[in-house]
Design a protein around this nucleic acid. Sequence first.
RNA 1: CGGAGCGUAGCGCAGCCCGGUAGCGCAUCUGCUUUGGGAGCAGAGGGUCGCAGGUUCAAAUCCUGCCGCUCCGACCA
Length: 472
Amino acid sequence: MQQLVRKGTNPLVIPESSTFTRSSFIATNRSQSMRLSRYFLPILRETPKESEIVSHRLMLRAGMLRQEAAGIYAWLPLGFRVLKKIEQIVREEMNRAGAVELLMPTLQLADLWRESERYEAYGPEMLRIQDRHKRELLYGPTNEEMITEIFRAYVRSYKNLPLNLYHIQWKFRDEQRPRFGVMRGREFLMKDAYSFDIDEAGARLSYNRMFVAYLRTFARMGLKAIPMRAETGPIGGDLSHEFIILAETGESGVYCNKDVLNLPVPGEDIDYNGDLTPIVREWTAPYAATEDVHDATRFEREVPAEKRIHTRGIEVGQIFYFGTKYSVPMKATVTGPDGAEKPIHGGSYGVGVSRLVGAIIEASHDEAGIKWPEAVAPFKVGLLNLKQGDSATDAACEKLYRELNTRGVDVLYDDTDERAGAKFASMDLIGLPWQVIVGPKGLADGKVELKRRSDGSRENVSPADVLARLAP
RNA sequence: CGGAGCGUAGCGCAGCCCGGUAGCGCAUCUGCUUUGGGAGCAGAGGGUCGCAGGUUCAAAUCCUGCCGCUCCGACCA
């Protein structure tokens, strides 16, 4: 069933009799709230057949996502809000680490890829396109060539280094078998950063900055992402880590030392110009590896039996140092202090932004639905009016809705005339961190119910306490 | 890319073998009764049966081709 939650009057028409402007969408400087009756949230009661893993199933049921073709999705409003929140966290942490944002196009000229000799090498996963002039284009699966082209066009001197440029853009890889929803789509949103340094020593400093930025990025999303030694893959190079979150339903097997789960994540006051080596060393000291590079002998020698973890994981980021792999064939050189031209040493650093939406759900859900970490939740609070039309509950809800907004809290206000049970089920499904449940029974005692989605705990509090708790 | 399936109402499915006016549940709409964990009753609307061709008096059903999607495996952020 597809229930388009849209009931009530035409939102484009404010009745003349209205004594107030009925705004369905409240946007203050700090918050963006919605009335469910005016939102677009097509919740599915039944599980769509095509979804195999839990995150995909929940994204479809929660009205976040619509499949348009194999591995290609439309992001519905609720899903889009999560995507944007994740994107923004990635952006803030990249900026904090000194990377500079730009935006490259999705389409690239084939000639660019011929320079690095990857046009032929990439194979059928690359979507190749011809324009009306029969020029060969491709939908970019990654952007090393293009960023190198941009870099070499402008940067001449070592004095402009180090430089780290990144963008957050849609990519396309024509997977033979797309599956698992956004976890392995063909079109996906990715943050990719590219570092440029005069030599390997400099490149390793850049690498470390991204390493630390990734620790912070994933921690902010409520994830324990573990850096694991990785194969360098088709991009090449000799230093690489995958950042993996543990989830039973993960795509690959992982082995690690339990200690790595409790390491401290650097605070936002971390000095990216300082020496980050101790942090990287600390995080790479405990054994942690995916099964394709797993060394059972070492694992058993280094990790005491009670600290061995063998489970599955989802890759949410990967960082590479690849040296002069692109700068040599593409002639991206700068003049060094000695007056000699040198190819730059590069690295690339990806975060699967759209994949993270699914990965977070894999790591945080229960039977009833999603449990969003607050930092990425589409709304912080779900406000449930259990008896729409009752003047007391309506008034109490309207007041809470306005006041939470005034205090900068994102609220999804379920003001529909659904029955209480349906509202509970829908709210649990979409997984907002907090539910404020307002009904006649509680209001008789001047109380509403405050429920925390993460652990299901609930308590009866006054509306004033709700404000104090949710908008301190 | 090997193997296996599936396309019938918004979603989940039956009907196909054995050809004969397209059905069920949920959802939607109307009315009444309900109202703190996915309500009940009564009524209503909604389908080029994936597309094209063929066989036949007659095709959702049989035959051929194509398209789309899913699952297992190999592969991958």
